[in-house]
Amino acid sequence: ETTGEEDITAFIGSTWVYYIGSGGVNKTLNYANVTENHHWTFCFEPGNHTISSTLSLSYNNAQSQQRVFIPTLLTLSNITTTQKLFLLPTALGLFTQFKTEDTIGNTLTLVKAVITRVLGGNTITITSSFTDGSGLVVFFLNPDITYSGSFSKTGFVTNNFVFVPITDIRVVVLGITGAVIGGTDISQNMSYQTFPLNSSLQNNTDFLFGFDVNASETLTLISMNITSPNGTQLGFQSNAGAGFISETINTKNFTIINGAFVIQTSNETIKFVRIWIVGNDFIGDYSLFRQLGLFLDYEFKDFTRLLIVIAVIFGLMIFLTAGQITDTSESQIAVLIILVWIFSVVGWLQNPIVV
């Protein structure tokens, strides 16, 4: 799983459960090879039959962590099928964990998880597995790559999402098939608002993050989970009903802050996210200081700025002295000093004075 997609050797362990027809009768093949090879070939005879088979295949080598390939039900015939498997060098990855739950927090086991990504312009399957008895599944992935996850289980709505691997446990929630999607009954008689209202925030500043929910229907839970770009939890608040929950959080040097919000009744759930952009300037700041500072941020040429400063000063002085034969006004000198000071403060004129 590198940009070059180099061919490597690995050894495997596999379990095949295969059958003809409905599967009332099946056989199991356990195959392992501790000798590293570039590929393996499986075949059966007679070749005029088509068989169905499940497969769980693990593979790794001395330079990589083990991965597992669990495809959907295979239909095998006399037509050759080729499957490319991907390993990631140990030095390039980390273990990322997922925990599966239903909408009320019950652990879901045997949820199939499939991880894919785009490599070389094509979407490829990286690895797949099932959650264990604790609802957990662990994958070895590259933290510099954006992956797609698909978690599915019979009787539940498949959860598809994109993510960047982290070491913290991610909770994946699966809704029940046939349940109300999007909280239609809730939303008919409900209003909510998230805070801060501004979509951009200042670095290293305390802000009140809040979630205000009003509803005529009885709510069992509202919650707010605020996280950093890498998924670290910055704050969490919840309430067993409608109302206002909040927490003061410092933006530090983050570039974005994520908010995950939940509104829940006994049989419906609404979930949504909000992202705040964090930086040294407010996007909504239209002050003269910010607008002049934008010229510096986008490398407005020094000489051009100087010409503009001179033009502004001369233009204003000509306007103030219009109709005068001689200039003896001290107020005009004061205006000149103030203009020089203003342009110095915003960085258009360089001087050693610290303001």
Rank of each mutant, 00 (worst) to 15 (best):
Phe44Pro: 04
Gly105Trp: 03
Thr96Gln: 02
Tyr59Val: 09
Leu29Gln: 00
Glu45Met: 06
Thr35Ala: 06
Leu74Asp: 03
His39Gln: 11
Asn26Tyr: 15
Leu74Cys: 05
Glu36Val: 05
Leu57Glu: 04
Asn33Leu: 13
Leu88Met: 10
Leu29Thr: 00
Ser53Phe: 08
His49Gly: 00
Phe42Val: 09
Val25Phe: 07
Val68Ser: 12
Asn26Arg: 14
Trp40Cys: 02
Val34Ala: 04
Leu76Gln: 10
Leu74Thr: 03
Gly93His: 04
Leu87Tyr: 09
Asn30Ala: 09
Glu36Leu: 06
Leu74Trp: 05
Gln66Phe: 00
Lys84Phe: 01
Gln63Leu: 12
Thr54Cys: 04
Thr81Asp: 06
Asn48Thr: 10
Val34Asn: 04
Ser77Met: 05
Glu101Thr: 15
Ile104Phe: 12
Gly93Asp: 03
Phe95Pro: 01
Asn30Leu: 06
Thr72Trp: 10
Thr28Asp: 02
Phe86Lys: 01
Ala32Met: 02
Leu29His: 00
Asn61Leu: 12
Asn33Lys: 11
Thr81Phe: 02
Phe42Cys: 07
Asn60Lys: 14
Ser58Gln: 12
Val25Asp: 05
Thr100Gly: 00
Thr50Glu: 14
Lys27Leu: 13
Pro71Met: 06
Gln66Ser: 09
Val34Asp: 05
Leu87Arg: 07
His49Thr: 10
Ile79Pro: 02
Thr90Lys: 15
Asn37Gly: 01
Leu85Asn: 06
Pro46Glu: 05
Val68Thr: 15
Tyr31Lys: 13
Asn30Ile: 07
Thr54Phe: 11
Thr50Trp: 07
Val25Tyr: 05
Ala62Gly: 08
Thr103Lys: 13
Phe95Cys: 02
Phe95Leu: 02
Tyr31Pro: 06
Tyr31Trp: 14
Ala62Cys: 05
Leu94Tyr: 01
Gly24Tyr: 11
Leu92Phe: 00
Thr75Val: 15
Thr96Ser: 05
Leu73Asp: 12
Ala91Ile: 07
Pro71Val: 09
Phe69Lys: 09
Gly24Leu: 11
Asp102Met: 04
Pro89Ala: 08
Thr100Glu: 00
Leu76Asp: 08
Cys43Gln: 13
Asn61Pro: 12
Thr35Glu: 11
Cys43Gly: 14
Leu55Gln: 06
Asp102Ser: 03
Ser22Phe: 09
Leu92Val: 00
Asn26Pro: 08
Gln66Asp: 04
Lys99Asp: 01
Ile79Thr: 14
Pro89Cys: 08
Gln83His: 14
Thr28Pro: 01
Thr90Glu: 13
Phe95Tyr: 11
Ser53Leu: 09
Gly24Ile: 07
Gly47Thr: 12
Pro46Trp: 05
Asn30Lys: 11
Gly47Ala: 10
Asp102Lys: 05
Gly47Arg: 06
Asn26His: 15
Ala62Met: 09
Phe86Tyr: 15
Lys27Tyr: 12
Leu57Gln: 03
Ser22Leu: 13
Ser52Asp: 08
Val34Cys: 00
Leu29Trp: 03
Ser56Phe: 04
Gln65Tyr: 07
